[in-house]
């Protein structure tokens, strides 16, 4: 039986549910779960003050419902279990998570999966900036795991990411893969400016069609049909990432950023080319 947390009020004050994770609450008596401290504005309040609580997390599952737009850090640092969100969440969803699964039916704010080390996140709607990114000052963004976004994403997705996969069904903002160390970013809508700036290694697939605004420090390699993308396609389909138009023909390959190692690659649909 899952633990159901339903928010009933409509206040806009930020709520941070740090520690409200299946791996943490499992085995906790219901009364203790109700007393679990979360942040509400500048105060610390018991979970039960903000959420109606039903069920229990014995099967390592937590369901969130209600107005969650200003509920932040859902699933942050979670290491196992499953969180299912019916609605739209605030910021830092799945940040620094190390395992388990998070599913969101609506949108999510900035910092989805920031510095996550493993696990699987899938969001049906759109997300904000800095998906899978590094926090300020830090050398590394996400180091493993998968983030699937059905809608669009904001700027600097995958900043300094070290490994893992980010797939965006819609468009993405500027500086996708900024300073990327390695890993895979796939975008099926249009793409903002300067994808791959200062990327060292890793793969960025920009499959929205149309011209791609590349920096002068990327060089074209040619037109190919790489097998590894077929593998990724199969894997993403297996994990439920559907409804996008996978490129079937050959793809154009660009290498860069020559300023920083230059072993990164950007793949675009045939004829995507430079903006």
């Amino acid at each position: 039986m899952a633990l159901l947390l339903r928010r009933t009020d409509e206040s806009d004050l930020p709520i941070e549910v740090i520690g409200v994770r299946p791996d943490r609450l499992r085995g906790m008596p219901p009364a203790e779960i109700g007393r679990f401290p979360i942040r509400h504005g500048n105060r610390t309040v018991p979970l039960a003050e903000v959420f109606q609580i039903k069920g229990d997390p014995s099967d390592e599952r937590i369901d969130f419902e209600g107005n969650l737009r200003n509920v932040h850090r859902i699933g942050a640092q979670m290491s196992a279990g499953r969180i299912v969100v019916d609605g739209c969440t605030g910021w830092h969803l799945a940040a620094q998570m190390s395992g388990g699964t998070i599913e969101v039916s609506g949108d999510a704010g900035d910092w989805v999966g920031a510095e996550m080390t493993n696990g699987h996140v899938s969001i049906c709607g759109s997300v904000g900036d800095l998906v899978g990114a590094s926090y300020p000052g830090s050398r590394r963004g996400m180091t493993n795991g998968t983030i699937l976004v059905g809608g669009s994403a904001g700027a600097e997705i995958g900043r300094s990411m070290r490994r893992g996969t980010i797939a965006i069904g819609g468009a993405c903002g500027d500086h996708a893969g900024l300073g990327m160390i390695a890993g895979t970013i796939l975008v099926f809508g249009s793409c903002g400016r300067y994808p791959g700036a200062e990327m060292r290694r890793g793969t960025i697939g920009l499959f929205g069609g149309g011209p791609v605004p590349l920096l002068p420090t990327f060089r074209r390699a040619g037109r190919f049909r790489p097998q590894f993308l077929a593998l990724i396609e199969r894997e993403l389909r297996r994990t439920g990432f559907a409804g996008v138009d996978w490129p079937s023909g050959k793809l154009d390959l660009y290498h860069g950023d020559l300023l920083s190692l230059g072993k990164g690659e950007i793949w675009t649909r045939e004829g995507g080319g430079l903006a």
């Binding site: 806009d12 930020p14 910021w91 704010g109 900035d110 910092w111 300020p136």
Partner: peptide, 13 residues
Amino acid sequence: SSDAGLPSATAAD
């Protein structure tokens, strides 16, 4: 830190 924190301006009361 709220450089990487929360959407402060909209959240303030």
